[in-house]
Simulated assay, not measured.
Amino acid sequence: MAARRQVASVCVRPCDVELARTLLAGSGVLVGTVAGFPHGDTRTTVKAAETRELVEAGADEIDMVLHIGRLRSGDTAYVHDIAAVVAAAQGHVVKVILENAYLSDEQKITGCRLTEKAGAHFVKTSTGFAPGGATLTDIRLMRAAVSSHIEVKAAGGVHSLDTLLTLHQAGATRFGATATAAILDDFAARGRGEQPPARATASGEGY
Rank of each mutant, 00 (worst) to 15 (best):
T180F: 09
V93A: 10
T163E: 12
Y102L: 15
L23V: 05
S27F: 15
Q195L: 13
A134M: 02
S148F: 06
E61I: 13
V17R: 01
M64D: 01
V146P: 01
S73V: 04
A177N: 01
L136P: 03
L114M: 10
D186R: 08
Y102H: 14
L19D: 01
S27D: 14
H149A: 09
R52N: 09
I150L: 08
R72G: 00
G204I: 12
P197D: 12
K124E: 05
V123A: 06
D63F: 15
A172W: 08
E116I: 07
G204K: 13
P197L: 07
V123W: 08
S126Q: 01
I150P: 02
K95Y: 00
V65K: 01
A134R: 10
F122C: 00
I139P: 00
Y102A: 14
A101S: 15
S9D: 15
G36I: 09
E18S: 11
G133K: 01
D60R: 07
A35N: 07
A88H: 13
T201G: 08
H39A: 11
L71Y: 02
A25F: 03
D186E: 07
A130C: 12
F37R: 08
H80L: 06
E106H: 11
V55W: 14
G32Y: 08
E194A: 14
G171T: 06
L71D: 00
A177C: 07
L141R: 07
T135K: 02
L103K: 12
P38Q: 11
I82W: 10
F129V: 05
V34N: 03
V79E: 08
